[in-house]
């Protein structure tokens, strides 16, 4: 890590998953922000300036797809990873606006790798 730590915003309505991801990404050296609703995620993008967002899609109230649109409207260059139990949103053209689409799995390595890949591409991490 160089300079100030990278902030990742994780939005998921499942408490256990938030806890798991928080542990996982902290361990990997990131600063972690959490949101349990889509609207909360949009607020935190506006106020807390995260470097990357991991969005669950199925959330009560504002879902991840809608949150994605709002987030990009606020900050259209922020990388967003959709992380969901559902493969079906891959065919939803709305989700094509996200930088990546990762299916939820107990093995968090693919998600961690995707986060890293995007951050390197954005120049926030050394290659």
């Amino acid at each position: 890590m160089i300079g100030k730590p990278i902030r990742i915003l994780i939005a998921d309505d499942d408490k256990n998953i938030r806890r798991l991801y928080e542990k996982e990404f902290r361990q990997a050296g990131y600063e972690v922000l959490l949101a349990e609703k889509g609207s909360e995620a949009v607020e935190k993008v506006r106020n807390e300036n995260p470097d990357l967002v991991i969005l669950d899609i199925r959330m009560p109230g504002m879902d991840g797809i809608e949150a994605l649109g709002r987030i990009l409207a606020i900050k259209n260059n922020i990388p967003v990873i959709l992380n969901t139990a559902y493969t079906s949103y891959q065919n939803n053209f709305m989700s094509w606006a996200a930088d990546a689409y990762v299916i939820k799995s107990p093995d968090l390595e693919p998600l961690r790798a995707k986060v890293r890949e995007i951050l390197v591409k954005k120049g926030l991490l050394p290659a």
């Binding site: 998953i17 798991l20 199925r58 139990a85 107990p106 968090l108």
Partner: peptide, 15 residues
């Protein structure tokens, strides 16, 4: 899908 979420927690925490 309903099974997948708890599965992530079970497997994830086990790891």
């Amino acid at each position: 899908h309903e099974i997948r979420n708890p599965l992530v927690s079970i497997g994830g925490f086990a790891r």
